[in-house]
Design a protein around this nucleic acid. Structure first.
Length: 302
DNA sequence: TGCCAGGAAGCCG
DNA sequence: CGGCTTCATGGC
């Protein structure tokens, strides 16, 4: 992977089509986010690998992201995991050239892709985090979703204090599998969502559900079918997870309200478009529906 | 206050 | 499969 290392700093190469600033704007979209902290042009994020907690400070330099470890020197395995995490978080391994080629010929995507050139899907490398966040966000407004996540993380995640600031990592499925529904309902999760999240954690703890198993030799359609078979995961959540965790660029959460609102704005419609209308618009986006969706989400944060 | 929110399950035909 | 109803809880 051509990642240079020394004791404290790693350098991760970035593709040509990469804008750290655009990614920062997306990462900065909620003041309630407690899984990373942005200060100027630097991101601090706590990462867990096995029992190791690593506080990363990520900054940008030409052609690279730099990862500095603030709380001591990680193990060799920890450093490798951190570099892998950053590559997945910023989706650095996807070649965006075909997407930009396609977007240049699409009336909706053309201005957005040009305006936000170098933005990449900011993902959730951790499958449990991706699935739990998808379920948390179902059918509630994002502000409330962030409130729920914050309570969940601060109740069951791990943390360290550095420079008088607390940094959190998302809870592990191992801990959540042991919970009862009544552990989550006091923080305003609905009983049903609590069941879904604990159920997924239990499946992951038992080993029958994992990122590796999902990706192992299956096409996107098979993966979606497998995800939808999980209680609490419908088409929206399945495609959201495929897009944000499995790096499947053809994933398409077509029922997403944010996507609908973005299209309403871009097309200057009186009402949100119907699913049938979106399907017609998306004929231009084949293979890149996930990036089209993500850029449309980004267009809402002007 | 009523409608809405980055949906999904359950039921019925 | 496709449509309809119910669930659940705060934001604005």
């Amino acid at each position: 992977m051509d990642t240079k290392t020394n004791s404290h700093i790693m350098r991760v190469p970035v593709p040509v089509e990469f804008s750290f600033d655009e990614c920062l704007i997306f990462l900065n979209r909620s003041s309630q986010e407690n899984l990373h902290r942005i200060q100027g042009e630097r991101i601090r994020k706590l990462l867990r690998h096995e029992e190791e907690l690593m506080l990363m400070e990520i900054s940008s330099s030409p052609q690279h992201l730099n990862i500095e470890f603030l709380n001591g020197v990680p193990s060799e395995e920890g450093r490798t995991a951190a570099a892998q995490y950053v590559r997945e978080w910023f989706d650095l391994d996807t070649d965006l050239a075909p997407f930009y080629e396609l977007a240049a010929a699409d009336p909706i995507l053309q201005p957005i892709a040009r305006h936000h050139f170098g933005l990449r899907i900011l993902g959730f490398p951790d499958l449990f985090e991706a699935m739990a966040w998808a379920i948390t966000g179902q059918q509630i407004n994002l502000t409330f979703a962030y409130t729920l996540k914050k309570r969940f993380v601060e109740a069951y995640g791990k943390s360290i204090v550095y420079d008088n600031e607390t940094y959190w990592v998302f809870p592990s499925y191992r801990e959540i599998a042991a919970l009862e529904v009544s552990d989550l309902t006091p923080m305003q999760y609905s009983a049903r969502k609590a069941e879904y999240i604990i159920g997924i954690a239990t499946q992951m703890a038992s080993g029958i559900l994992s990122k590796e198993q999902l990706l192992n030799g299956k096409d996107a359609q098979a993966i979606e079918k497998e995800l939808v078979a999980i209680r609490g995961v419908g088409p929206w959540s399945a495609n959201y997870v495929m897009m944000k965790c499995l790096a499947i660029t053809s994933a398409f959460p077509i029922a997403d309200v944010g996507l609908h609102n973005a299209l309403k704005v871009q097309l200057e419609l009186e009402q949100k478009p119907t699913i049938a209308e979106i399907e017609r618009l998306a004929e231009n986006w084949k293979g890149w529906e996930a990036y089209a969706t993500f850029y449309l989400w980004r267009s809402l944060y002007e």
